[in-house]
Amino acid sequence: MSAMNLSNLTKNTLNKMFALGKRFDGRKLLEQREFTVEYDVSYKAEGSARVKLGKTEVVVGVKLGVGEPYPDSLDSGNLMASGDLLPLASPRFESGPPKYNSLELTRLVERAIRESHVIDLKKLVIKEGEKVWTVMIDIYPINDDGALIDAASIAAMAALMQTHFPEIDKDGKIDYDKKTTKKLPLLENTIPLSLTFYKLGDSLVVDPTREEEEAADGKIVWGISHYKGKEHMIHSAQKGMDAHLSTDDITEMMKNLPKLYDDTLKKLKKFLK
């Protein structure tokens, strides 16, 4: 019966517990679950990673293709994130055309990466104005137990960092079976990640389980990096859901965001190849 909506009783209980700083699984409100990163989800992808954050599991594959540049950026390669909330991953996900939640997932992961300029798109030009590399980041949840965007952003960065170019001949034809040793051009010491704060009552929590996420009234997704290893930089943000946020909420988040990011980065670094 996992497809049923959250009961008011659970929501009220969570609200009261959060007000006391408690959670069902014993974590503090601003404490994230442990996660693991694995690689080689598919040897057919140019880079891939699987992240397990608590019971949430996401796979990300990076495919490289050759295409035409966009008319407004003839001197740059292309970047695109897509994916879908597969019905495989939750009784709550339905087949059919992608809905807002999958759009939000892919758009926000893409924007944190794009705005941080971690991928040097200018180095992805094969022939200016005509032929460029296109980086396609595809995101699929395997099991949803909350915080999908945060987990997906970890997986996306892990996958990008071990993406290798396939062989390409003079005519621009790609041989996907032959991988080169050449890696994707990435900005050093810049790893943009998503961190989402949820609001229920007056409490802010991070990394919610599915149940906590469904109880929440509001949220905001931040994309942040320790830019070029020098200072914390926010690259993207988007508020979601009906509840408003107060200036105090935002000040509180700004106080905690850099530390939460540093913790996540430290954990991620253990898994980087």
Binding site: H235, S236, Q238, S246, T247, I250
Partner: peptide, 22 residues
């Protein structure tokens, strides 16, 4: 009232500068 209903951001801003933008 102090109720923010839309917050979006694209680019680069330091966390301590964001409240000043608001």
């Amino acid at each position: 009232s102090d109720k923010w209903t839309l917050l979006q951001l694209d680019g680069k801003i330091q966390p301590d500068l964001y409240p000043k933008a608001l």
